[in-house]
Amino acid sequence: MTVELSRAQLAELARLLASTAPEEVDCEVFHRHLAALVERHGAAVDTPELLRSLRQHIEVCPECREEFEALLRAMERRD
């Protein structure tokens, strides 16, 4: 079997691997804290370790990153 990825895909994979951590929170945990993360820039997140994990999740999970950015946009443009 040969793996043939485009350069862009390989670049994305290299970036993902560079951001990969031994322990990560999954999307469910991320989502539980998403509103607090956006609203108070993480001030309401329980511990610094958790805050670090949530920020790391954004680096390795494109879908959660997309939702984080969308919520941020919605909150910033209010009023």
Binding site: H31, A35, A36, V38, A70, L71, A74, M75
Partner: peptide, 16 residues
């Protein structure tokens, strides 16, 4: 759980 305002929490669900 009250970690954020209710409306922000609700909007996070809607965005998903």
């Amino acid at each position: 759980e009250g970690r954020s305002r209710f409306t922000t929490w609700a909007l996070a669900i809607a965005i998903r």
